[in-house]
Amino acid sequence: MTDAIQSSNAPKPVGHYPHARRVGNQLFLSGVGPRDPASNGVPGNVHDKAGTLITYDIEAQTRSVFANVRAVLESSGARWEDLVDVTVYLTDMARDFKTYNAIWAEFFPDAGAAPCRTTLGITALPTPIAIELKCIAVIKE
């Protein structure tokens, strides 16, 4: 049995898919970005007068994406501590990995209790964001 989950506390998906799908005690999250759930804006993005993105703040986006993942987890009956595997997509690995990695360590201070993680450098994401997370959690019943 599978259950699709939509969270009113996370940004709306940018496509036709649920925030998460629960299968038994496993929870699979769709890719989650840092967009603000209320405004749909991207924290830390700076645009010129023509609307072209000129810079972004990876710290603001990382903190925001973590908050959005937490919102989806909580809407699904899971907790931050239930994460078991995270795939991270960064659009500029050379520039952003160090900052992102330091924030990760704040949120997961005990490496032995942290979820497994894979971080990939990619050329683009579907919206003007610099980070996206794909997560799997196991809900403890």
Rank of each mutant, 00 (worst) to 15 (best):
D3R: 14
D3P: 03
I5P: 05
I5F: 03
S7M: 06
S7C: 05
N9L: 09
N9D: 14
A10Y: 03
K12F: 07
K12W: 09
K12T: 11
P13Q: 13
V14M: 15
G15W: 09
Y17S: 08
R21W: 13
V23M: 07
G24F: 10
N25V: 14
Q26L: 13
Q26D: 12
L27H: 02
S30Q: 12
V32C: 07
G33W: 04
G33I: 07
P34D: 03
P34Y: 08
R35A: 09
R35W: 07
D36H: 05
D36P: 04
P37K: 02
N40V: 15
G41T: 13
G41M: 10
P43Q: 14
G44L: 12
V46G: 02
H47I: 11
H47S: 09
D48H: 05
K49R: 12
G51Q: 10
G51S: 03
T52F: 14
T52C: 09
T52N: 10
L53N: 06
I54R: 02
T55L: 11
T55G: 10
I58C: 00
E59R: 04
E59V: 10
E59H: 06
Q61G: 03
Q61A: 09
T62D: 08
T62W: 03
T62F: 06
T62N: 06
R63W: 14
R63K: 15
V65I: 13
F66I: 15
F66A: 06
F66L: 07
A67H: 08
A67W: 03
A67S: 13
N68R: 02
V69T: 11
R70E: 14
R70I: 12
A71I: 07
V72K: 01
V72G: 03
E74W: 09
E74H: 04
S75H: 10
S76V: 04
G77M: 07
A78F: 07
A78V: 05
A78G: 08
R79P: 07
R79Q: 07
W80H: 04
E81R: 00
D82W: 00
L83A: 10
V84G: 06
D85V: 08
D85L: 13
T87A: 11
V88R: 00
V88Y: 00
V88Q: 00
V88G: 00
Y89Q: 11
L90D: 01
L90Y: 01
T91K: 02
A94N: 13
R95A: 11
D96Y: 02
F97N: 04
T99F: 13
Y100N: 01
N101M: 07
N101A: 05
N101S: 11
A102L: 09
A102S: 15
I103L: 15
W104R: 05
A105R: 12
A105T: 06
E106W: 10
D110H: 15
D110N: 05
A111H: 08
A111G: 09
A113G: 11
A114F: 08
A114K: 10
C116H: 08
R117N: 08
R117P: 00
T118G: 08
T118F: 11
T119I: 14
G121Y: 02
T123W: 04
L125N: 01
P128D: 12
I129C: 07
A130K: 02
I131G: 01
E132L: 11
L133H: 00
K134A: 15
K134I: 15
K134D: 12
I136V: 15
I136H: 00
I136E: 01
A137I: 04
V138C: 02
V138F: 06
I139H: 02
E141M: 10
